[in-house]
Amino acid sequence: MSPVLPDGPLINEAVGRLVRPYTVSDGRTRATSHFTLVTVVRATGVQTQGAFGLEHAQVLALCESPVSVAEVAARMQVPAAVVKVLLSDLAEGGAVVAGDAPPPSPGHYARPDRDLLEAVRDALLKRL
C-alpha cells in the first residue's frame, strides 16, 4: 500500500478504496467520532463475526499491545480517518477496546484536572 501524497487530493487507488466507506454514510462517520489521534486502543482477542478484510486484520495485528490511533495510521501508511473507520468496525464487534480521552470539548480547550497535570509534571520531572 503506498502512502498518499502529503499535499495532494486522495487520488491514490488503494487509498481511494479504503476511504470510500468513510464518505459513504453519515452514520459511519459519526460512529468513528469518538476516536481521536491520541485514543489508545488494544485488541481484545475476541473473534468477531464480521467479514473483515485485510485492513482490519492489519489494524488488529498492530494493536496487540496498547497503541494510539496515530501510530496505527502511521504504520499502515493510511490517513488517520481511515483507521478510525476500521477501528470502529472492530470495536463494534468487541475485537478492540478504546481507552478514555481527556474530557472532550469540541472546538474548545478542555481544562484538564489538576491530578492529571500533576501526574504529567511528576513523570516529566523524572526524565530530567
Partner: peptide, 10 residues
C-alpha cells in the same frame, strides 16, 4: 475482553 479502563489516556 480486556477492560478499556486499563488503557492509558493519550
Amino acid at each position: 475482553p480486556l477492560p478499556a479502563e486499563a488503557l492509558p489516556v493519550g
